[in-house]
Design a protein around this nucleic acid. Structure first.
Length: 439
RNA sequence: GACUCCGUGGUGUAGCCCGGUUAGCAUGGAACCCUGUCGAGGUUAAGGUCGCCAGUUCAAAUCUGGUCGGAGUCGCCA
């Protein structure tokens, strides 16, 4: 008999079907057994009259909660049953995998253990309905991203994560032995996605891991995370990149709303709203003025940058003033931007760059890139960078490279703001941080 | 790297401020009971020398110092 999804049982009233899943609850009474069985699609109550089937009842009595069962039985419409108004009358049962008792972590318990403990038992934690939904949503997000790009003839790339030389700063690179020399884990696909521009791919994107050796202990940092990166050719300015990104994001959110909006509301109490276009844009000098007017003191050593507290204030300001969850902060001073960001011809102290804040959280950095070899080389020197390790990169711009721009986007940070989840460790399959390498 | 807070049975917590009887509660696990239960219910017993080390004291979960672990904020960023 084929397996029936529990969520589809309503279509099989009166039929005998086969379900497979976890024993979530067992109420073992003198004459009757009531079991709640869970699969990815839902929950169902299964009833057993002990006297009628003593062998089956014995198997069930010996199975602990979270054991995996295969059950056949007849689907009965029964409005008295609180769980979906239907139940299955058991005909046969097979114990496929017995769970030990007690469980270190009960996926259906009302109280949640601390996040550190849950990470130790992540596979059990992931059995929780919230987490299943989280990854269903993430799958939809990733698919929508690809759909949007593929429709626009973007090329998907996989750039190497093993690097031969520290490039940009080097401070946050993980170093590892590589045969008889050293290698480094990529902290960004930045240079390699720009190579796609020089390669004649008009648009490229990459969704893949990046590694940052930052000893950051916050609710929004990881040492390994999934970066969503894109680069597009023939832009006139960073405005073209922002205009693209906001359409892209609105499409993704639209797809999430269609596929999961109601369930997200029920499980996370988060409203999925498709953002209006265009997103508000605020230049950095405006942002600093707004913060001043709001009475927020940016630490003086920030030199034109904004600290996380300031970003939250800007996020709140934009919500109140424009009723918008997103805001582009544009035109950052060169001091706080990398050498490859293009600068304004008429204002060389300002880059044609942006950050995207979602609900006050930084989820993207983007810019038009400097594609003129001489300018780029000069800006690298100005930042005190040795040309030798980045010469392969500078070469991209020596033999014809279209003007271009792009962005990097934090997948898990986006999941945080989408589902109103305060800790990034909740939004990632397995968390990696300075003190977390297992499981 | 800096700072703040936390560390009590498997899990979540009360007690800590104002040291002093068997460290309380909930949940989970075990056994038994229970005309269909549904956050099931009932009874019983079990499970902790209060992260670790040292100190103060007649006496420390409680006060002090150190140490380890965790959470968070900042720096850095996605």
């Amino acid at each position: 008999m084929e397996r029936t999804q529990i969520g589809d049982l309503r279509k099989h009233i009166g039929e005998t079907v086969r379900i497979q899943g976890w024993l979530q609850t067992l109420r073992d009474q003198k004459k009757m057994q009531f079991l709640v069985v869970r699969d990815m699609s839902g929950l169902v109550q299964v009833v057993v009259e002990k006297a009628a089937m003593p062998d089956e009842a014995a198997v069930i009595s010996g199975a602990n909660v979270e054991s995996v069962l295969t059950i056949t039985g007849k689907v009965i419409d029964n409005p008295i049953v609180k769980l979906g108004g239907l139940e299955m009358q058991l005909e046969s049962v097979r114990l496929d995998s017995k769970a030990d008792a007690p469980l270190p972590l009960d996926p259906s318990a009302a109280d949640l253990p601390a996040i550190d403990y849950r990470q130790d038992w992540r596979f059990l934690d992931l059995r929780r309905a919230e987490n299943l939904l989280m990854f269903k949503v993430q799958t939809t997000v990733l698919m929508a991203m690809r759909e949007f790009w593929v429709k626009d003839n973007f090329i998907e790339i996989q750039s190497p994560k093993l690097l031969g030389a520290p490039s940009e700063s080097g401070a946050e690179l993980f170093e590892l032995p590589y045969f008889d020399r050293k290698a480094y884990l990529a902290q960004s696909p930045q240079f390699y996605k720009q190579m796609g521009m020089a390669a004649g791919f008009d648009g490229v994107f990459e969704i893949g891991p990046v590694f940052r050796a930052d000893p950051s202990f916050t609710s929004r940092h990881m040492t390994e995370f999934t970066s969503v990166d894109m680069e597009m050719a023939y832009v006139e300015s960073h405005e073209d990149v922002m205009a693209y990104q906001e359409k892209w994001l609105a499409y993704i959110i639209q797809r999430v709303k269609e596929a999961h909006g109601e369930e997200i509301k029920a499980r996370f109490n988060a409203d999925i709203e498709v953002p209006s276009l265009p997103f508000p844009r605020i230049t950095m000098s405006e942002a600093l003025a707004i913060l001043k007017a709001e009475g927020y003191q940016v630490p003086p050593e920030k030199k034109g940058d904004i600290d996380p507290g300031g970003e939250r204030v800007i996020g709140k300001y934009v919500k109140e003033k424009f009723n918008h969850d997103f805001v582009f902060l544009t035109d950052w001073p060169i001091a706080v931007r990398p050498f490859y960001h293009m600068r304004y011809a008429d204002a060389p102290g300002i880059t044609k760059s942006f950050d995207l804040l979602g609900k006050g959280l930084e989820i993207t950095t983007g810019a038009q890139r400097e594609h003129r070899y001489e300018m780029l080389a000069e800006q690298a020197s100005e930042k005190g960078l040795n040309h030798e390790p980045i010469q392969f990169y500078l070469d991209f711009f020596k033999f014809g490279c279209p003007p271009h721009g792009g962005f990097g986007f934090g997948l898990s940070r986006f999941m945080m703001i989408l589902l109103d989840i305060p800790n990034i460790r909740e939004t990632v399959y397995l968390f990696r941080g300075p003190t977390r390498l297992n499981p």
